[in-house]
Design a protein around this nucleic acid. Structure first.
Length: 554
RNA sequence: GUCCCCGUAGCUCAGUGGACAGAGCGGCUGCCUUCUAAGCAGCGGGUCGCAGGUUCAAAUCCUGCCGGGGACGCCA
């Protein structure tokens, strides 16, 4: 495009100027397929510096592009509308792409972490990133309220991996806070037939744990408080196992589990404080130690060490920042609920004060999920035991439907979920529409194999994609790599669900218009089988990226 | 009071500078002797919260306002 522009200027067709030579050439995919496979607005941008009507500029560029033929890549280039330049791929280029999808089926669509992609703006392939999410304390099972973070974090991780980044999934929790002792006291109370303390934990899961508590756990505990701690640590370890199992069922697996206590024990918190102190970012007032967060634009300064000598949660957080960076990450991402937004600034400010790049500490806030059942709001208190366990919800809705539900919405939007409606509509979830297309293809492939027709080895040069139903379908199949690229750079999955739905629709239409297995026309059949197989691969890889299964039959 | 997020079809949500604003669900009408009808074709449904501004071009960017949610602790 840039070359064509230069040629047009050199040949005197278009006026020369510094602006014209340096204009940003933008190429995008038009919404309307009639506008070609790619479109550019350069002519519109050039109108002012060139003092020429956009359509005229577009026409000049189109003729230059047509002359060059771009080494067989483009079939046509034409000016259209108010000055758009529409380009169309050649059959050969499209066929080669379809062949490539089949040859590299396992990695088709994913970005390699090579020098080329690393240099590309927004992609950041090769980056080593830590994604911390869920991080619910092990004082009870995961609730539906934890679902958002679990899916958002896992989907983000998958998308970054597909974009060629190295991802560590991290879970942070506190196993040494007073809540652990309260949990232990609650378990003991139930075991011994006493009332659960007012501020204890009242859920059924506590009662279920009580009879399992062995006397050996309490050995060596001198008084009631020590017993409660011992029981609490034991119970929270059991609960953590349960949490891990729940996450496994969601298809979420963590690489690293870090406890708040270890950040103190291993000296990270002290190290962080030392670094801030050395930089002159700390001061003492009213017996407490403060971080001068306001120097970095925060509303107020923040306490690190309370006047009673205990450190705050924030102190652990900054120790954690150092600890994470010490492991060699280029970038840290935190998935937090929207209610934590007030703590974002201080964390990033502290990272900056400790000498890290503020931009390398990113917080993604998830919107609120408001659960309602039959018009009534559901409370979600672990302490009161009035929550809905994540496992229960997923047993009803299914993991694939739930994953799709969260993947197709932005992380930061608030949503209302009426469980009655969700149950009723789970069978209407669009995920099944996409999975059905995949199953249909698998069925066709089985049918063909039974009829002794094998997919063509390659389509390049076949002319199958010249137009008609085949051309339409192939163009969408070929788009997966750019869908993944967009998802990776925007760090979002909505585009993937939209694409998968579009591809499924295109396939269902193709299914209607073109019979694939036809013993009367074996050559056409085998070519169509190759296209249909490529469709299956794009569908499976799009679903796989979201952690959703691609069934061979439904 | 300050700050953050959201406001798009009856409902749930995509689209975040480009050519007539999209999908699913719901409503209505047709289509199974033919590779899976969990499908297909069609109809109906929109002041993109409101008002200004920037731009050749605004649902998209800027400002103000309205409405909904959330956060503002020496809690964790």
């Amino acid at each position: 495009m840039r070359e064509a522009l230069a040629r047009a200027i050199d040949s005197g067709e278009l006026p020369d100027s510094p602006e014209a030579r340096s204009v940003e050439v933008e190429v995008s995919r038009p919404a309307n397929p009639e506008h070609g496979d790619l479109a550019s607005n350069v002519a519109l941008r050039l109108a002012k510096p060139m003092r020429m009507a956009p359509p005229k500029i577009a026409a000049a560029l189109a003729s230059q592009l047509a002359l060059a033929g771009e080494r067989g890549l483009l079939a046509s280039a034409e000016a259209a509308g108010a000055g758009f330049l529409n380009l169309r791929y050649s059959e050969d280029a499209l066929e080669a792409t379809i062949d490539r999808a089949r040859a590299d089926s396992g990695v088709w669509g994913r970005l390699a972490a090579d020098a080329k992609t690393a240099g590309q703006a927004g992609i950041r392939a090769g980056r080593h990133v830590n994604v911390e999410f869920v991080s619910a304390n092990p004082t009870g099972p995961l609730t539906v309220g934890n679902a958002r973070g679990a899916f958002v974090g896992d989907l983000l991780s998958r998308v970054l991996e597909a974009g060629g980044q190295r991802v560590t999934r991290e879970y942070y929790f506190n196993d040494s806070g007073v809540q652990v002792q309260k949990l232990g006291a609650s378990v003991l109370a139930i075991r011994d037939g006493h009332e659960v303390p007012e501020d204890g934990y009242h859920g059924d899961y506590v009662a279920a744990l009580a009879p399992l508590l062995g006397e050996d756990i309490l050995a060596g505990a001198a008084d009631d408080e020590a017993k409660a701690w011992a029981a609490g640590r034991w119970a929270s370890a059991r609960i953590r196992e349960g949490i891990e199992a729940s996450l496994e069922r969601l298809g979420v697996r963590f690489d690293v589990w870090t406890t708040e206590g270890s950040l103190h024990d291993d000296g990270w918190v002290a190290q962080a404080m030392e670094r801030l102190r050395a930089g002159g970012h700390l001061y003492e007032q009213d017996g407490a130690t403060w971080f001068r967060s306001t120097a970095f634009g925060d509303d107020k300064d923040r306490v690190l060490v309370k006047s009673d000598g205990n450190t705050t949660y924030f102190a652990s957080d900054i120790g954690y920042v150092i600890e994470k960076f010490s492991r060699g990450y280029d970038h840290l991402i935190y998935i937090w609920g929207a209610d934590h937004h007030g703590t974002v600034a201080r964390l990033r400010n502290a990272a900056e004060a400790m000498g890290f790049d503020k931009a390398a500490v990113e917080v993604i806030l998830t919107g609120w999920v408001h659960f309602v059942e039959g018009g009534e709001e559901l409370s979600m208190s672990k302490r009161a035991g009035t929550f809905i366990a994540l496992d229960d919800l997923l047993a009803e809705l299914g993991v694939d439907a739930a994953r799709w539900y969260f993947a197709s919405r932005g992380a930061n939007v608030n949503m209302d979920v009426d469980l009655e409606v969700a149950r009723k509509q789970s069978s209407e979830n669009p995920v099944y529409y996409v999975q059905y297309a995949h199953a249909r293809i698998a069925s066709i492939l089985r049918k063909a194999a039974a009829a002794g027709i094998a997919p063509a080895a390659a389509l390049e040069g076949s002319g199958l994609l010249a137009g008609g139903p085949e051309g339409t379908l192939a163009r969408i199949v070929a788009r997966l790599p750019e869908v993944i690229e967009d998802a990776a750079s925007a760090q979002e999955t909505q585009g993937v669900t939209t694409y998968a739905t579009e591809l499924a629709t295109a396939f269902h239409a193709f299914y209607r218009d073109a019979r694939v297995v036809d013993p009367e026309a074996p050559e056409l059949s085998s070519q169509r089988l190759a296209l249909v197989d490529a469709t299956r691969i794009s569908l499976a890889n799009a679903l796989g990226l979201l952690g959703i299964s691609a069934p061979d039959s439904m």
